[in-house]
Write a protein that binds this DNA or RNA. Structure first.
Length: 533
DNA sequence: AGTGCAGTTGACTTT
DNA sequence: TAAAGTCAACTGCAC
């Protein structure tokens, strides 16, 4: 504000300046909260508050919650976070105004009664539905002469000419000072607010998520603290284990999705933890843990950037050579067996059942369950991808659809990774504890038989009665899938299209030099390797 | 002590 | 964030 005021004061009379201050008092700043449900480090809110009286707004959009990727557990988390945000804003003098309806209609009605000077919201890279809704809102803003500012909260750049310098920009943004929350908000007169609807009112059926994470900034702060103080120390070693990962991973993901914490404050906490570990001197594992964690925060934005640059990845193969490879209509019994944890592959089933109840899986297990759907079960990624979107409390469209396509091999860019669900189980859950926890039918078996009940007499006795026979033979199914994928990848036109995709979407990372390379490193220029991983 | 050989390990390639 | 295969170096052991 000071800049504009100063220039006016210099150029014009004091009266003009006073008039501008007067106008500023009345110029309603609507802060439209979307997936940034916090007042701390919220640039939209902070900047709006510098300009004039703030109307904090949340729009419950029934059409959004009718989309196939939306689910009961998402709304529960969002609603808890919205309620907490409302309390926080109320303490500052102006409660959150909740409106039920279509965004343009809501904005238009507020504009007619109160007059919106400026609209503020964070820059959102959501699904196709939110993208189209934002286009309608942008049109309305243009028609009504309302400027709409969308400061960034993630490292996503809009528009992005190319990927050069992206990582540096991410670093700069995350290290920048956090925005401070306005201490007091001036109450807005005559503003009505709707109650938060129940999931049923939004048409959302219960989804079996009895043990999903709780929303609200308080829960996020507690996770952040316990992760940085204690849980995170073994992050690097334990994150891939389905049992240990639940504790050793930060579990901050839904808070980043709904913005109850800003990714910047999380990254800065990690850097601070790294610093304190270094100054302590003793080897505790914290520096390495934080390095791994920070690289994942970086990947978070890296993947969302992909959806920003290529919205069709939500419904279309990134690489067209894979169109028609798998049947469009899913094989319903196979899909159902996979979804419900009744595929007869114990470790896979344990993961799927655990996901349904808790809304969370560690990264490796997410990759595995998607790979099994895509390769062993030969399902097109759309139906399994939708199921996972609905199951993940932390569903973030940009990360999700990039990963789904990557794990089904339809990007054509990265190498095919066919996870072996039996081997992963033996590697990550050697004692079969995770299987026993989620597939109690098999808990009475010795560990080895829990992983492969068909290979042991005592396991065979349960098959077809207490626990299903495997829906596919894993080794043969994997071989078949690899053969079909590699047949496509060998075609020269596949490579050509893949190179174009790599140039557009892949990260730029320095080549890792082989340890045994005899050539002196200085003889070759630094090369760039392009990765979609 | 040196040699041959089977089995192991790790780095690297292929699918 | 894969898994299987290849190859060369290495190991332990018998002779």
């Amino acid at each position: 504000m000071s800049q504009r005021c100063a220039s006016l004061c210099r150029r014009d009379t004091q009266t003009a300046c006073a008039k501008w201050h007067q106008m500023k008092q009345e110029a309603l700043q609507v802060v439209w909260f979307k997936r940034d449900l916090r007042v701390e480090d919220n640039a939209a809110l902070a900047r709006a508050a510098e300009r004039g009286p703030v109307l904090p707004l949340y729009i419950v959009e029934p059409d959004y919650w009718r989309e196939p990727d939306a689910n009961h557990r998402h709304w529960r988390f969002a609603a808890q976070s919205i309620a907490a945000l409302n309390l926080n804003l109320s303490d500052r003098g102006q409660p959150l105004v909740i409106r039920f309806g279509e965004a343009v209609a809501v904005l238009d009605s507020i504009h007619k009664t109160h007059g919106i000077a400026t609209l503020w919201s964070h820059m959102e890279t959501g699904n196709h539905w939110t993208f189209m809704r934002d286009r309608r809102v942008a049109g309305w803003c243009r028609d009504n002469g309302v400027p709409w500012h969308e400061p960034r909260q993630f490292g996503v750049i809009r528009p992005l000419p190319n990927r050069d310098g992206w990582a540096k920009a991410w670093d700069r943004q995350m290290r920048a000072p956090r925005s401070t929350a306005p201490i007091a908000l001036r109450p807005i007169a005559n503003m009505t607010s709707d109650p938060l609807p129940s999931p049923e009112q939004l048409g959302l059926a219960p989804d079996g998520g009895s043990a999903c994470q709780k929303g609200g900034r308080e829960a996020g702060l507690m996770l952040l603290e316990s992760f940085m103080e204690q849980r995170g120390r073994t992050y690097r070693r334990a994150m891939s284990s389905p049992l240990e990962g639940a504790d050793a991973c930060s579990r901050l993901s839904p808070h980043l999705t709904w913005g109850t914490l800003s990714i910047r404050e999380v990254a800065q906490a990690a850097w601070a933890r790294q610093e304190s570990a270094r100054s302590e001197g003793t080897r505790t594992g914290w520096t390495g843990a934080m390095t791994s964690f920070l690289s994942r925060l970086h990947w978070h934005c890296h993947f969302i950037q992909k959806l920003e640059d290529a919205p069709p990845i939500e419904w279309q193969n990134l690489h067209p050579a894979y169109d028609g490879l798998r049947p469009n209509a899913p094989d319903s019994p196979l899909l159902a067996a996979w979804q419900t944890g009744q595929a007869g592959l114990p470790f896979l089933d344990a993961c799927m059942r655990s996901l349904e109840a808790t809304g969370w899986l560690n990264f490796r297990m997410r990759a595995m369950v998607m790979a099994v759907a895509s390769y062993h079960l030969w399902l097109d990624w759309r139906a399994p991808g939708l199921h996972l979107a609905r199951m993940f409390t932390d569903y973030e469209p940009g990360i999700h659809w990039s990963q789904v396509q990557m794990q089904s091999g339809t990007t054509g860019m990265n190498t095919i990774r066919v996870y072996n669900p039996v081997k992963q189980g033996l590697d990550q859950d050697p004692d079969g504890l995770f299987i026993a926890r989620w597939v109690p039918e098999l808990a009475g078996l010795p560990a080895a038989a829990r992983h492969r009940p068909w290979a042991y007499a005592e396991g065979q006795r349960l098959l077809g009665r207490d626990y299903p026979h495997p829906v596919v033979e894993p080794a043969a199914a994997a071989k078949n899938a690899k053969d079909r994928l590699w047949a496509i990848r060998k075609a020269p036109e596949h490579r050509h299209a893949a190179e174009m995709l790599v140039a557009r979407h892949a990260s730029r990372a320095p080549t890792r030099r082989s340890k045994k390379r005899k050539n002196p490193p200085s003889s070759t220029p630094q090369q760039l390797t392009l990765r979609f991983d």
